[in-house]
């Protein structure tokens, strides 16, 4: 099978958006779900969240950050190129219902998966307050898009180059301490950020949902590589999640399991760079 890249754009340095032609996936996709792609015969299967989808045009949007071999190789591909595999939609869809006021927190590339959720919450009549954050202003993605689907948009940057000087967690805490009743918080971003949000909301008794990103292979419940510990129970993030209640998540286990292949990932990237030259323009 081949899945065509119909559009490709760099959003900020090292973060790219791609629209992939996959009409059946687009037709079934819902916020909160993800896909798994493989670039070529030798490729690794990597999971990426569905950032958007267009049923009429038949494409799915992914937004990814260059991390290692596969995402760097993907970043070099252009509109018109084809991916070998694109499986989805995988995982459970977010439970988006009318509950009142929802706070959506996106950190870094985690803003991408938050976006379709914000839109969906808003569409059915919730009040949506979004908090997005990045290291600095030049790394902030989807600000306009988020603005368009939020009643209120708050921005935090680590260096203060835009919005609040500090972490998204500071803004979450301010909201929780404020007058407005918050009915749910959804936080997606690096595990360290989700753990921090979980820590902040814990004393407040506000339902807090996070989307977990363990290493996956098949994404269908067949390998168990994606297992996470939720309230003392082992779950497979690809079929039981990826979203879970933040207070139940064992973030230390998640983070440690994510580092399992660090040595091999370096080796893979080095081999790739050697074969290609990091600045080459080959596909």
């Amino acid at each position: 099978m081949a899945y065509k890249i119909v559009e490709k754009r760099q959003l900020v340095p090292d973060v790219h958006l791609m629209n992939i032609e996959a009409p059946d996936v687009a037709a079934a996709a819902k916020p909160g779900q993800f896909i798994i792609l493989r670039i070529d015969e030798e490729g690794e299967r990597i999971p990426l969240t569905i950032a958007d989808y267009d049923v009429d045009e038949g494409f799915v949007t992914i937004i990814f950050q260059e991390m290692g071999k596969t995402t760097k190789q993907l970043a070099k591909m252009a509109a018109g190129d084809e991916l070998q595999d694109f499986v989805g939609p995988l995982g459970k869809a977010s439970e988006i219902e009318k509950i009142g006021t929802v706070v959506l927190v996106g950190g870094g590339v985690g803003i991408a998966p938050v976006y379709p959720q914000a839109r969906a919450y808003r569409e059915i009549g919730n009040k949506v307050i979004s908090i997005i954050g990045a290291r600095n202003e030049s790394l902030l993605i989807l600000e306009d898009e988020m603005n368009a689907v939020s009643d209120e948009l708050l921005v935090a940057t680590d260096d203060g180059s835009k919005g609040h000087h500090g972490f998204v967690t500071d803004l979450v805490k301010e909201l929780l301490d404020g007058d407005e009743k918050i009915d749910r918080i959804v936080a997606i971003g690096p595990p360290i950020m989700m753990r921090a949000v979980a820590g902040v909301t814990d004393p407040y008794d506000v339902e807090t949902i996070v989307s977990l990103n363990p290493i996956m292979v098949d994404g269908t419940g067949m390998c168990g590589g994606c297992r996470v510990n939720i309230g003392g129970e082992t779950k497979f993030a690809c079929v039981d999640g990826p979203e879970f209640n933040a207070k139940d998540v064992d973030f230390n286990l998640l983070m440690s399991r994510l580092s399992l292949y660090r040595k091999e990932e370096m080796e893979s990237l080095e081999t790739y760079k050697k074969g290609c030259g990091d600045d080459c323009k080959c596909q």
Binding site: E44, R45, E264, S268
Partner: peptide, 20 residues
Amino acid sequence: EFLTRVNLMKAYRFPESDTP
């Protein structure tokens, strides 16, 4: 998982194949 990595994903040929 172990066998899928080895067989389906050809991890025995890592790093020529990408799956560790």
